[in-house]
Design a protein around this nucleic acid. Sequence first.
RNA 1: GGCCCCAUGGUCAAUCGGUUAAGACGGAACCCUCUCAAGGUUCAAUGACUGGUUCGACUCCAGUUGGGGUCACCA
Length: 553
Amino acid sequence: MATNEELAELLFPEVTETIEDLEKRFPPRNLPEGAQVTRFAPSPTGFLHTGSLFTSMISYIVAKQSGGVYCFRLEDTDTKRTIEGSGDLLIDQLAVFGINADEGYFPGGDKGAYGPYKQSERRMIYKTVIKELIRRGRAYPDFCTPEDLDAIRKAQEASKVLPGYYGVYARDRNLTVDERIEKIKAGTPWVIRFYSNGDHSRKTKFIDAIRGEIELQDNDTDVVILKSDGLPTYHFAHVCDDHFMRTTLITRGEEWIPSTPIHLDMFRALEWKAPKYAHIPSIMKLDHGNKRKLSKRKDAEAAVSYFLDLGYNPEALKVYLMSIANSNFEEWAIANKTFDLGKFKFSIKKMSLDGALFDLDKLNYFSKEIIARMPLEEEFLAVRAYAEAHEPEFLAKIDADPSYFKKILNIEKDRKNPRKDYAKYSDIYPLIRFFYDDEYAKIAANPLPFNENAPKSTIKAFLLDASKSMPFGVDEAAWFAAVKELGAKHGYASSNKDYKENPSAFVGSLSDAAEALRIAIVGSKESPNLHEIIEILGQERVSKRLEGVSASL
RNA sequence: GGCCCCAUGGUCAAUCGGUUAAGACGGAACCCUCUCAAGGUUCAAUGACUGGUUCGACUCCAGUUGGGGUCACCA
């Protein structure tokens, strides 16, 4: 009669260390009371997901505000789904949002004493633990083929019993050690399963940091812990890694709630203290009247890069996500006149329990606020960087005369209520391109939107006159007084009130006069403060435009 | 289907048994105003249903309904 000891040795001869050794290698952290060790542990399967940003942001802020440690761990155990280089991309994208790990996997190499931080490099750790589990009879090799498993599942469905590899349905659970050894020696492929002692008819409870007490049926499934490719499954890797990395708070999506009993079962078997869990609600989207999780495949906004490509300020996205995470953040921000997330006291208990619908309007609102509050120099750099990456034509204009562009950006910015017309950097160029002569020429080549209130001849004369006598270098009041006077000379009312009282006495209202000027100068009925615009454009350019438009009428 | 999570306006939501049920985004109106973006003022809009417990329930309990999640050698 062979022993489990022999089985373990046959399965993992390369493992020489023990769990004891690992405990010494990764000692408990020496952190102050209350400090949380959190982690973000994505799979390198693509771009940073909006939900991942949400979760990582929360992990980060919890660690920071408690004086703890935030780790980044790469869960690259699914070799089929792994996309080469996406782990590094994830780190770059998190860095854009200022979420930089204290320790973990980095493109240049691991940082921290609890590594490696890439699961594919932790094989020996998993095997060490599994070898021990086999010795103790708490794990065993399973020789089922996919077809065998399929047959078991079909039988279960037919007899209307819960599907899964458990109890009497766990075919290889009760093989003798001799039988196991025999099959292994015969070269039968195997995986390692956890030997559960759980009882499905009983409940396990745990305290979720967000939801409070959660009660679930105890796990009795013998889950696969080591796949045939020698890599662990998520369930086992989570238990091992978070134990040896000394994670204190597991932040993960709420889709993990149902499998928590599996994890607890394993912590129990290993006699390890289970960490606390905080199951984060998912961000949802409305799809044909139904709420559903943001989907990487179906929804562009599921990828953080979508917002970055459109030119949203990363801070704005974070602020929006924080307003979902802790809804009191918004009131705090208004009261404190700052959106500085670092100064806000985040509370994991205040997180709402159901998934929020992604609200683009609200993102736009925050984004406008944040861009408007940015100091000019900072905004300039950010816009330039965006143009550099996405709008080469715009970039050329900026670089041809940076100070000119800064003046444009600064329109109505230096005041208590700054202009808020850009939610994202991509909104800027279309709105300000008239400042550049070649772009203005393209706009003016199309019919300009003059209204029909005043006859063309009046507009023509008015614009021509303005091109010669409109004052420059004077303050806004003086300039506007001059505009009124000029308008009056051509029959426009000098106030809208006058016009309203007696419309037939005038060719148009003051608004009509101002509108004619605006259209001629910027090519549109809408623009920021006209006075600031003409001062930036300068007398020569403005006169030329007025003259040109007048001539074309 | 089993199990779990969730349930206040269109959206995000406050209230820890007693309120005229906050606030923000969005919407509407008005004001300001040379247009727009803002800003100001005001308005409309919420406790899924049914039973309990209680002097009193949005709040506690149960059930119903609805939404979401999960049941892999994916995470």
